[in-house]
Every structure is written in structure tokens, then in C-alpha cells.
Simulated scan of single mutants.
Amino acid sequence: MNIFIEKLCNKYKVSEANVQLLLECMEEVHFNKKELIVREGTKNSNLYLIKKGIWRGYYHKDGVDTTIWFASEGEAAFSVWGYVDNAYSLINIEAMCDSTAYCVSRSVLNNLFSSSIELANLGLSLMERQFIGQENWLISTGSPRAKERYLTLIKETPELLQYVPLKYIASYLWITPQSLSRIRASL
């Protein structure tokens, strides 16, 4: 089993057979570094499974970008607003490096889910893991220990340091780039 499929199966607790069924219905797409996959204020109801690369979700307010998530190989990424409600996205999704992903529209995915209980369960698992990730992020922002949050992030996704500018990592951790520099210097 290739690393992408293995990561996908482990993260979302799904079988390789179901992942293969899903991938057969998806289109492989490529994005360049810094390319926006989803632009705030536009509709995008696609679900992406990242085969290679790192993406970030962020919003822009009062001249400041705030990163709310990172996704890497073997993870799903999508605009919740576009996917769930076919509404305008409140976030941007940007490729942090040249990336390859599998893409499927919500309508195709819904047809797949209605055709197979296994695929419907896969979809449920994808959504549940997204919710857990968001709640973990929300809880960690209240943590008084930015150093602990940084160490956890780097342990879970070490490739971030290779592709993501430190200012985006600092934003995700809710600290200034200067505070992140001090944390990194102390390690």
C-alpha cells in the first residue's frame, strides 16, 4: 500500500478497499506553490484528498491572515461552507508547496454515498475527523503553553517546517513570529 493511502486509512479509520473505490471516482489535480485552491467569498463544494503537499486554511481580517488549519499528505481538505451549504467560503485554502490532490464534487460524492453504506461510512469518518481536528485546534489555543502546542504540531506534521513560513505557523499557534522564534531558539 502506498504511503498516501496508508496515511488516509490510518487517519480516517477506513479500509484500503473503500479508499480505492473513492479514488476511482476522483480526478487528480495539481496546484502550484501559493496557489489558492479556495478563495474567500467564492463557492467551492469540492472535497480534496491531498496526495502530496501541504495546504493551509486561513482567513483575512483587518489586514492580518490567521491560519486555522494545515493539511498534508493523506488528509482531506475542503471549505465547510461550500461543501455543506453550497455557500460562499469564509476562508482561503492555499497550497504551501507544489501539490497533487484528488478532487471530487459534492454532488458526485453524495451519489457515491447513497450507493454504498461503506462509502457513506467513509464520508462520515472524514467529517468526524475534520471536527475533531477543529476542536483540538480550538482547545489548544487556550493552552498557556505555546511551546507545548508548537512541539505537538511539529511532532504530528514535521514537514511543516520545510514548506510553511514561520509566520503562518505562529499565526496558527496564536502567537507572534517573535514569540515563535524565542521558542525555537530555546529548543
Results as ranks from 00 to 15, higher is better:
T42H: 14
T42E: 06
T42L: 04
T42N: 15
T42P: 02
T42C: 13
K43C: 12
K43S: 05
K43Y: 01
K43M: 12
N44I: 05
N44L: 04
N44R: 04
N44W: 06
S45T: 10
S45Y: 03
S45A: 14
N46I: 04
N46F: 03
N46D: 05
N46G: 05
L47V: 06
L47W: 00
L47A: 02
L47D: 00
Y48A: 04
Y48V: 02
L49E: 05
L49S: 04
L49I: 08
I50M: 12
I50E: 11
I50L: 15
I50V: 14
K51G: 04
K51A: 06
K51E: 09
K51Q: 07
K51H: 09
K51N: 10
K51S: 08
K52W: 04
K52F: 10
G53P: 03
G53T: 02
G53Y: 03
I54H: 14
I54Q: 07
I54D: 08
I54S: 15
I54V: 15
I54K: 14
I54R: 13
W55L: 14
W55V: 04
W55E: 14
W55P: 06
W55F: 15
R56T: 08
R56L: 09
R56V: 05
R56Y: 06
R56E: 05
R56N: 03
G57P: 09
G57I: 10
G57V: 10
G57C: 09
G57K: 15
Y58S: 01
Y58V: 00
Y58P: 01
Y58W: 00
Y58Q: 02
Y58A: 02
Y59D: 03
Y59T: 10
Y59F: 10
Y59Q: 04
Y59C: 04
H60K: 07
H60G: 02
H60Y: 13
H60A: 08
K61F: 11
K61Q: 11
K61H: 13
K61Y: 08
K61I: 07
K61W: 10
K61V: 08
D62C: 06
D62G: 04
D62F: 10
D62N: 15
D62R: 15
D62K: 02
G63M: 08
G63L: 02
G63E: 03
V64F: 06
V64A: 07
V64S: 09
V64H: 10
D65I: 00
D65Y: 00
D65T: 00
D65S: 01
T66G: 00
T66E: 08
T66Q: 09
T67V: 03
T67I: 00
T67M: 00
I68N: 08
I68M: 13
I68Q: 15
W69H: 11
W69I: 02
W69K: 09
W69M: 11
W69C: 04
W69Q: 13
W69E: 10
W69V: 01
F70D: 07
F70M: 11
F70Y: 07
F70S: 11
F70R: 15
F70L: 09
A71Q: 14
A71M: 11
A71K: 15
A71R: 09
A71F: 07
S72D: 13
S72Q: 15
S72R: 02
S72P: 06
S72W: 13
